[in-house]
Design a protein around this nucleic acid. Structure first.
Length: 163
DNA sequence: GCCAACGTTGGC
DNA sequence: GCCAACGTTGGC
């Protein structure tokens, strides 16, 4: 896949996380409100992390398997794709024996919290909105943990989120 | 807890 | 390269 350039316009993404594992509040409490986004073990998502996601891109922080399931807020990409070194730590839950220094296989980016929505944007709210109801995350069987978001969707979700 | 969707694995 | 079995995701 072609590497995009810094002159491209800003892109938008949705990152899923189970809040029991890592929530937007965990991100707010993290040092510098930053975190690495390790543990993605799907090739399609890996390709986006490695090739497409740029510093400055917008990220929706989505809470999956939660009550309520929602877009909880937004973050910004602060570091482009680099090898997910957790894949090379024996015993780590993200360990993958086939990952090597020369061929790390898995990649991650770093993100920084932008805002927690005043009103978390629940799936019910997304369903009721003409634009948001067509987001990839609303499609049945949408399991991809990193998803592209359009500018139109980015703006529509912000309108629902209270800013 | 259920189960549909779907990615991965491995036998052939 | 096909495809059945299996494991995981994630909404409900």
């Amino acid at each position: 896949m072609k590497k995009s350039t810094a002159t491209d316009t800003r892109r938008y993404w949705l990152f899923k996380s189970e809040p029991d594992v890592f929530s937007i509040h965990d991100l707010a409490n993290a040092k510098g409100k930053r975190t690495s986004w390790e543990g993605v073990r799907n090739y399609q998502a890996r390709n986006m992390l490695r090739d497409d996601i740029q510093v400055g891109d917008g990220v929706f922080f989505y809470h999956s398997n939660a009550d309520p399931m929602c877009i909880a807020g937004t973050a910004e990409v602060v570091k482009v794709g680099y090898p997910d070194h957790f894949a090379r730590e024996a015993g780590h839950k993200y360990f993958d024996e086939s990952a090597t220094e020369d061929n790390p296989i898995w990649f991650m980016v770093d993100i920084k919290l932008t805002q927690i929505f005043k009103t978390p944007v629940t799936r019910d709210m997304l369903s009721a909105d003409a634009v948001c109801s067509n987001m990839m995350v609303m499609k049945k069987g949408s399991r991809l943990s990193i998803q592209p978001v359009t500018k139109e969707e980015w703006d529509a979700v912000h309108a629902l989120g209270g800013t």
